[in-house]
């Protein structure tokens, strides 16, 4: 992939933003950010186009216009089994087939930092590693969307660990910690929560997506703050904000400690106007949402 480039020097509202995966965690926040900027949005969830249907490519192609900016945010994630991986790849195949029928003017693919495997410190030039199913799935989907984009600008965004209100997953991290803290007054860590991760608020990712759409950005960008925190520190940030303060306890470690840090220089260079919130700022948003949280079914 060529280096990250903005095709438009000044931001211009896209004629229409088509969001595939509109009901998902990322999709919903992208739609909300776009609408708040007055951008016309076509939100496509599974209820609108079922990407597993036989004629899904025809349906999807029929909905897209040449002037659209398409955000491909649909995934069944994380891909934990080979079946889930293949299902995700087929989804991408449908999007690619639809694109061939009806290409739009800009494609933004929401990938993941899982493409870097176990690497501790990553930049956009770090090699990808397809040794996990979830990582392999995004590596494959990235290659697929690259193969159909041709001369059309294609942005591939690789977000780090996401958190924020309305996360349907209950995977280990800030959202689960917030729910558990509110529900049971306890936060349980793997080991002592030593692992460092770069936690990104989903609304900041949505703002990056919108910025890409408005500048017709192409290239690969990691979406990360550039400051990693241990899971223990994350838990402490949350606990500090609750009354009574929940207890944090460790557990026998099942897996070795791994860390993930990002070099944010490219983002700071290319998107100086999109400032990210620190986890300290972001987690304040998380708690009231967790308190009011009702279980959400997976996307």
């Amino acid at each position: 992939m060529p280096p990250l480039t903005h095709q438009l020097e000044q931001p211009v509202k896209p004629q229409r933003l088509v969001v595939i995966g509109a009901a998902g965690f990322v999709g919903r926040h992208v739609i909300s950010a776009a609408r708040s900027e007055g951008v016309d949005v076509l939100a496509l969830g599974r209820a609108d186009v079922d990407l597993s249907a036989a004629d899904a490519d025809e349906q999807l192609g029929g909905l897209c216009r040449p002037s659209d900016t398409v955000v491909f945010a649909a995934a069944r994630a994380p891909a934990k089994t080979s079946e889930m991986m293949v299902e995700n790849v087929i989804m991408a195949q449908v999007v690619c087939a639809a694109w061939r029928r009806s290409p739009a003017s800009h494609l933004i693919y929401i990938s993941s930092d899982a493409v870097y495997g176990e690497a501790t410190f990553v930049t956009e030039t770090s090699p990808t590693d397809a040794s996990s199913l979830h990582g392999a799935m995004h590596v494959a989907r990235e290659a697929m969307v690259q193969s159909i984009a041709g001369a059309t600008p294609l942005a591939i965004l690789r977000p780090s660990a996401l958190y924020g209100a309305g996360d349907p997953h209950n995977s280990y991290g800030p959202n689960r910690f917030a729910r558990d803290a509110v529900k049971s007054g306890e936060i349980s860590l793997f080991g002592n929560g030593e692992e460092m991760r770069d936690h990104v608020h989903v609304e900041d990712l949505a703002r990056v997506v919108l910025s890409c759409a408005m500048r017709r950005t192409s290239g690969i960008l990691n979406v990360a703050l550039g400051q990693s925190l241990s899971f223990r520190a994350v838990a402490e940030h949350l606990a500090f904000r609750l009354e009574p303060e929940p207890t944090i306890h460790g557990s026998p470690r099942q897996n070795p400690v791994t860390h993930r840090h990002f070099d944010p220089t490219l983002r700071l260079t290319k998107m100086p106007d999109v400032t990210f919130r620190s986890f300290e700022q972001g987690c304040s948003d998380l708690l009231p949402a967790a308190v009011a949280l009702t279980p959400v079914s997976p996307e």
Binding site: G226, D263, P264, L268, T269, P272, T275
Partner: peptide, 11 residues
């Protein structure tokens, strides 16, 4: 990476 040091500090 080193080249970005000052920019990272400013941010």
């Amino acid at each position: 990476y080193r080249r970005g040091w000052a920019l990272r500090q400013v941010h």
